[in-house]
């Protein structure tokens, strides 16, 4: 039995197997569920982004506003780190599909580390903003900014936890090539969270205030 679970067991075979399960669409239930869930998430972030845009200008002339706190170069770097984690996620998916379990572990850990770097950057940013006088309750901009970026940060954190769970599974020998699709599905979530950050970064940080 163990013989068959070597490198020749590829994602292609896993896909064949998924077809063997006769789903009507040809996509496995799990992957379809993730796509459907991400569709729902679009509306969640849509609502939060709308709330931010609706509220960001509603501050008094002496209030702490976006221009007073944003450090674009810093956030650009942390955004770049997050985007790079999407690349490493792709490597993680491709390595497990090829049956390269060691490579898969390395890329999973790298992705989680890059994500953690981003979250650490966000924590630093929040602390810095707070010390500059922008709290969650300070004004409408503060509430909307922290709610939006906080929700995104929570999503990244959940993604990191899932990646680390995959890593632990892999170390314990429970994440073989037959589970390549599991990694791919977590990857879908991860890419989604990254794409949302591109939108948030553009709208919150780069649009003229």
């Amino acid at each position: 039995m163990a013989d068959t679970m070597t490198s020749e067991t590829t994602a292609a075979e896993a896909a064949t197997h998924a077809e063997g399960h006769h789903t009507s669409t040809g996509i496995s239930n799990e992957k379809l569920a993730m796509w459907v869930f991400l569709g729902s998430e679009c509306l969640l972030f849509g609502g939060l982004i709308s709330t931010y845009m609706f509220n960001k200008g509603r501050i008094g002339p002496d209030d702490v506003g976006p221009d007073d706190v944003f450090d674009i170069p810093f956030t650009s770097v942390s955004s770049f780190v997050l985007l790079m984690s999407s690349l490493t996620m792709v490597f993680a998916v491709s390595s497990i599909a090829r049956g390269d379990l060691r490579g898969n572990r390395i890329w999973l850990a790298t992705t989680a580390a890059l994500g953690a770097t981003f979250v650490a950057g966000q924590v630093y940013e929040f602390t810095a903003f707070y010390s500059e006088g922008l709290g969650f309750t300070t004004n409408l901009f503060g509430s909307a900014f922290y709610a939006l970026t906080g929700f995104h940060g929570a999503h990244v954190t959940i993604g990191i936890i899932m990646l680390m769970s995959l890593y632990v599974m892999s170390v314990r020998g429970n994440l073989g090539p037959e589970r390549a699709e599991t990694v791919e599905i977590i990857g879908l979530y991860w890419h989604f969270v990254d794409i949302v950050w591109i939108v948030i970064f553009t709208i919150v940080y780069l649009f003229p205030q």
Binding site: M5, A14, H17, S28, A33, F37, M162, T182
Partner: peptide
């Protein structure tokens, strides 16, 4: 031997 994950939302 290749069994698709049963409930991947739940990380099999």
């Amino acid at each position: 031997t290749i069994t698709a994950p049963e409930e991947t939302l739940a990380l099999p």
